[in-house]
């Protein structure tokens, strides 16, 4: 009993002193915190489906194009607009962050799982050949890198009656886009997770892919299969 009282006293003393040092650090950090910039955003309702990759606000670390990092801000990734939405907890207001400011961000779940997104410059194989910036989830990075753009698109439309008025309601669903990148190449779009399409993108490595798949008894049907295969290919000589 005596010891526990002494220990409680001891620890409370240490924590009080530590708080003094911490307070100074927090104050310095708060004035040197990099400011996020963006524009006011209101969620456009009326879609049938979920616009966001993460439905709930998640804590994130945002790495900016300036090289600075902003820690612990609550964000949602909007896959429909391909924008990062930030809730300013002081103003209690939502903002669409300036895309040009964000290089990458990490979403953290309460359980500590991290989803890493990067902004990629993709040249779309259309007539314009203009590069477009998209946020994509980083799955594998190495000799062969694999990214998934968590795109949400309109797939269909429904007609519903609201207060007796017939309204068109668009149905939105996740339509992920898969991108592969070799060290010396641009981003390549993988149409579907199928061995045939994968081989088309990596024609010089056909034998190696075949060997790895047989050796590990792999099938290529899901995102997980593809991650596994690319990881194995990356460790091959």
């Amino acid at each position: 009993m005596k010891y526990s009282i002494i220990f409680v006293f001891l620890f409370s003393f240490i924590s009080t002193e530590a708080q003094l040092v911490d307070r100074d650090k927090n104050l310095t950090d708060s004035i040197s915190q990099t400011k996020l910039t963006g524009e006011t955003w209101f969620e456009q309702k009326g879609y049938n489906g979920e616009q966001f990759f993460n439905k709930a606000w998640m804590l994130s670390d945002i790495i900016l194009t300036t090289g600075e990092t902003v820690y612990g801000e609550k964000v949602k990734y909007n896959g429909f607009l391909d924008e990062l939405i930030w809730v300013n907890r002081t103003l209690n207001q939502q903002f669409k962050l300036d895309k040009q400011l964000i290089k990458e961000f990490r979403l953290k779940t309460e359980k500590g799982q991290i989803t890493h997104f990067k902004q990629l410059k993709i040249i779309k194989p259309d007539s314009t050949n203009k590069p477009s910036e998209v946020f994509a989830e980083v799955e594998v990075e190495g000799k062969i890198s694999f990214y998934i753009q968590r795109k949400i698109s309109v797939v269909n439309a429904d007609y519903i009656t609201i207060d007796g008025i017939l309204c068109k309601q668009e149905i939105i669903k996740p339509t992920p886009q898969y991108y592969l990148k070799l060290l010396s190449s641009d981003f390549m779009l993988l149409k579907k997770i199928k061995l045939k399409f994968f081989m088309q993108l990596l024609p010089t490595q056909k034998k190696q892919i075949d060997f790895v798949m047989r050796k590990n008894n792999l099938k290529l049907k899901t995102e997980e299969d593809l991650v596994k295969l690319i990881n194995l290919l990356n460790i091959q000589e």
Partner: peptide, 10 residues
Amino acid sequence: NTERVFGNLV
């Protein structure tokens, strides 16, 4: 001509 935020300033 949009409402902008800079840190906590609107």
